[in-house]
């Protein structure tokens, strides 16, 4: 039984339907990528999971339906969503942002340990620990957003284009850290990305979306090997 399973999911902004049959399955401890062009519905798919857009179809997490739950409820079940545009809290300090991530946790000692772990992983954040998040660079904000989500000790981390707006080398650093988080913690991940090469560095399998529909899925090895698919969907 997968950790998260989407079957024929639909989603609507007001009356406008933007998803029409998205199916994805994330195994316990696995990492899945969602690829697709601008406007394909990647962000909306993540929103359907975290309860921030009206959705239809089947969304099951740990064998129960989570469709229609409020975002705070979904978060409390162990799903941490790093939204498109990062969602860092600009007027709060870096440390406060991390503590917001740990809002639902009761294991205070472990929280402190996790903060240290993340500050070792992202030394930039350690230097800026008392700065307001709004004063950070784009790359640092993305690191903070990922760290904040990790502070929730989730079972499933969902990341919406962590490379957005970053210089290639910074994006690379962010993905290296995400890969390390995955190896060291074993949490499952669902990662939206436009840059297939970056996504492939952390995920085991990929689903491709086209105009609100899943059109293709497979393991990274299969997709990498297939030249036609590479050309059509993965930018060469």
């Amino acid at each position: 039984m997968p950790l998260l399973e989407l079957v024929d999911v639909t989603a609507f902004y007001g009356p406008v339907q933007v998803l029409d049959g998205v199916s994805i399955s994330v195994p316990e401890g696995g990492a899945v990528g969602i690829l697709g062009a601008n406007g394909a519905g990647k962000t909306t798919t993540l929103r359907a999971i975290s309860g921030t857009v009206r959705a239809g179809g089947t969304i099951r997490y740990r064998d129960r339906s989570i469709r229609g739950l409020k975002p705070e409820r979904v978060a409390s079940l162990g799903i941490a969503h790093v939204p498109e545009g990062r969602g860092t809290l600009g007027n709060l300090t870096v440390r406060e942002n991390l503590m917001v991530g740990a809002y639902l946790r009761k294991d205070h000692r472990q929280v402190a340990t996790d903060v240290e772990y993340l500050l070792d992983l992202f030394p930039n954040l350690r230097e800026r620990i008392r700065s307001n998040a709004s004063a950070l660079s784009g790359g640092e904000q993305q690191m903070l957003a990922v760290s904040r989500a990790f502070m929730a000790k989730p079972r499933l981390l969902i990341l919406d284009e962590p490379s957005l707006g970053l210089a290639p080398s910074t994006a690379r650093n962010v993905y290296d850290a995400i890969g390390r988080l995955r190896r060291e913690s074993g949490i499952a991940m669902l990662v939206v990305e436009q840059n297939a090469n970056l996504a492939f560095s952390v995920v085991d399998s990929v689903t491709v979306l086209e105009t609100g529909r899943s059109v293709l899925s497979g393991t990274t090895a299969e997709l990498r090997g297939d030249d036609d698919i590479r050309r059509a969907y993965l930018g060469g």
């Binding site: 978060a75 969602g87 809290l89 709060l92 406060e96 991530g101 904040r148």
Partner: peptide
């Protein structure tokens, strides 16, 4: 306090605070 932190998170960006499990 945690209550205060939650309030400030909500004031800053409510949708994002909700993603952290805060009951806005």
């Amino acid at each position: 306090t945690k209550f205060g932190l939650g309030m400030r998170a909500v004031a800053d960006n409510a949708p994002s605070a909700a993603l952290a499990g805060i009951r806005v």
